[in-house]
Design a protein around this nucleic acid. Structure first.
Lengths: 396, 396
DNA sequence: CCCAGTTATTACGAGCTCGGAATAATACCT
DNA sequence: AGGTATTATTCCGAGCTCGTAATAACTGGG
């Protein structure tokens, strides 16, 4: 009878690419839910069950999907046969680096972690050396059967140039300006390679692996040496003009100080300060007297160390302010906090939630749930892997 | 050979609805550009020229489109025949109201203005009365041949409940709480009726009639009794959870004062204030001594009245701060300022642009062009009409 | 245990969309 | 002015997707 739902994505098409696009969409839905029957797929993709049957059969035959054995009985009638991802269909690789460490991870097609690897970066190491290490460490997690390698994602701290595949700048590694990364990695491993700034990649990680699996639109806050927001709208990353969206580390925001009882007040200063100079992990550690590593900070906070509590809570004040501003602007379904601070524990989570609600109290607007990422220390690398997951299409 | 680009919008389908959706998309592209040939349509919609031919012929035959006579010679070869909208295919109606005035407009299918009407709202008038006036004034602009009426859009100041078609609240009209609007208008005119808050509707007006015609993603700032941002992403309105996005009037922001020479400084206060208590037209007028109407303010500013300049420029400082924050977050391609302040003239525009650039100067991020809306005093009503334009589909 | 009721999946004919070829309409060159 | 190159649009056979109908696989009740 008749066909075509709606217009394709604006780019090219050509035979195979079209149906590969639909198949990618189909796989994404299965990925987001963990398993769907043909009939459910037909519903969400608004294609007829007959057509879905054709697509699923093909993907089944090509080994991307498997028929789950658990038949789901939903009331009376023939139970639906769940279709799931075939873990053996391939592996996604992600790598994440910053001034102190490089981390890599490989994930199978059903998004189970296969291998992890990490390596410290020495103080003052130069960009070229770091990139070399990145390549080496990717080599450690790449599947031995190279045919299984579906692609490599790279999360770079700071802005990136998507067109040229370079990292534009990152002030905490020497010589780190306009560094070409995509090209060397692609040459070495001969697979698709994608780059994004880590904050955006993290949003995709939450979308595919984490707290955003069930949501259409949310924001993730990535906090480490800087602060960036990854914005997901309709299950797509919104990165703005020239990949510039989410740079809320540059927001000018008020400063808070925490009394020992945990209450917050504005510091009596006129000056507003860049959010990332107040509330990034780096800024927090720099505020404390002496040498504080991220791990030490987390441990101290969890052990109720008063100095750590005071400084972190003050930062939380500014973060809450930022979350409130973000909510006024975007009304996301959820805000996910990712990065080392996500490990601060329930105390911190509820403090942040309360403070955010307080910031929004004068208005009647809906306060979004603030969730802590549970992706753990390799979350950055998972974010990078999610880049590949997000762009994967079946070969045609 | 093969078909279907990509998945349909998530809602329903059924035969006619599918192809109506594609046709609506086709008409939107013509609307945005003002005229396209079949071959260009094929390119942007990623359908084959053959298929486009079928669609265009049908819409031509049904009277929605006309073949332009100007054949565009683009180098050598057969010139393309431009397809344009048929102005006589129907009319869109929009109505906008606030505490002081109700404005309505009708627009033909090729988006030329047909009729305008307005009526003042008396001080202290109650909600029920205002709604009655809204209906009356819509009646003045509705096409006499009711078959031409394609739909009515309503822009409501403040939050709306899309599901029930009610205005949730607006503090500057008495009794204005949970007012049902859609139903009475629909009953009276027997046509599709849509409601949105005016800020969001304005964004659609800029998208279809104004400064956003050539853009994919931008933000429009609507400033009158409050301040709201309308966010367009990929030529779609993003309205967030529960239609809550863009409420940046609630942003806490720093206060400025303007020296007579136009220079800005922070006012030496710790307190942050809601943006709309500083920079809305209402707030500006309230700041000035005596009774100031919007018109008086605009005239005084344009005549270089020092008091008006000082107050408006101080507000511009906060606005520039807000635009900067917005840009850090969303990196829009453009920021459009809509509402009465858009008529302040070039002086104000360049002052605002300069100040915004100054706010963003510490970073290397791209400063977006700030444009003034040119839609004029009926811009709110046009925004409401744009609601209908945006949702129009051919009958099938 | 069999049967009716319910829901998921597959089979099949019809029509819509596609790619490629044919045709139309112009510019530019000689 | 006529021929050639170039580009837009239409024509046509092939195949993909759709709706309908048939079939499969269960639940629950007598």
């Amino acid at each position: 009878m008749l066909h075509r739902g709606v217009i394709r994505p604006n780019n090219v098409q050509k035979k195979g690419a079209i149906i590969a696009g639909v198949e990618a969409e189909l796989v994404k839905h299965i990925r987001a839910t963990g398993g769907l029957s043909r009939i459910e797929l037909a519903k969400v993709l608004t294609l007829s069950p007959s057509t879905i049957g054709v697509y699923v059969d093909r993907l089944l035959h090509e080994g991307y999907l498997v028929e789950g054995d658990r038949k789901v009985p939903c009331g009376a009638g023939r139970p639906r046969t769940t279709i799931a991802l075939n873990p053996n269909a391939g592996q996604f690789v992600g790598v994440d680096f910053h001034a102190k460490e490089i981390l890599a991870v490989s994930v199978d097609f059903a998004q189970n972690i296969v291998k992890q690897a990490s390596r410290p970066v020495r103080r003052g190491e130069r960009a070229a050396k770091v990139i070399q290490s990145v390549v080496d460490i990717v080599d450690e997690v790449v599947p031995s059967d190279r045919k299984l390698l579906l692609g490599i994602g790279i999360g770079s701290p700071g802005p990136v140039d998507l067109e040229h595949g370079t990292a534009v700048e990152y002030r905490y590694i020497r010589d780190f300006n306009d560094v070409p990364i995509v090209k060397p990695v692609m040459r070495r491993f001969n697979a698709p390679v994608y780059i994004e700034n880590t904050a955006n990649a993290m949003a995709l990680a939450e979308l595919w692996f984490g707290q955003g699996r069930d949501l259409n639109s949310f924001v993730s806050l990535w906090i480490r040496s800087g602060i960036g927001a990854g914005i997901i709208i309709n299950r797509q990353l919104y990165s703005g003009l020239a990949d510039g969206a989410g740079e809320i580390g540059a927001w000018r925001c008020p400063l808070y100080k925490a009394a020992p009882d945990g209450k917050l007040e504005r510091r009596d200063e006129t000056t507003l300060c860049d959010l990332q100079e107040i509330a990034s992990v780096r800024a927090i550690c720099d505020t404390l007297p002496g040498r504080w590593s991220t791990d030490r900070l987390i441990r101290a906070y969890r052990k109720q160390d008063p100095a750590a509590r005071e400084v972190v809570n003050a930062a939380a004040g500014s973060l809450a302010w930022a979350i409130a501003q973000l909510t006024f602007c975007l009304a996301p379904e959820r805000v996910v906090l990712a990065g080392p601070l996500a490990d601060l524990g329930d105390d911190f989570a509820s403090f942040l939630a309360t403070t955010t609600a307080a910031c929004m109290a004068p208005t009647r607007l809906h306060v979004p749930p603030v969730a802590m990422s549970t992706l753990g220390p390799f979350s950055g690398a998972l974010g990078a892997a999610a880049l590949v997951v997000d762009r994967w299409k079946p070969a045609r």
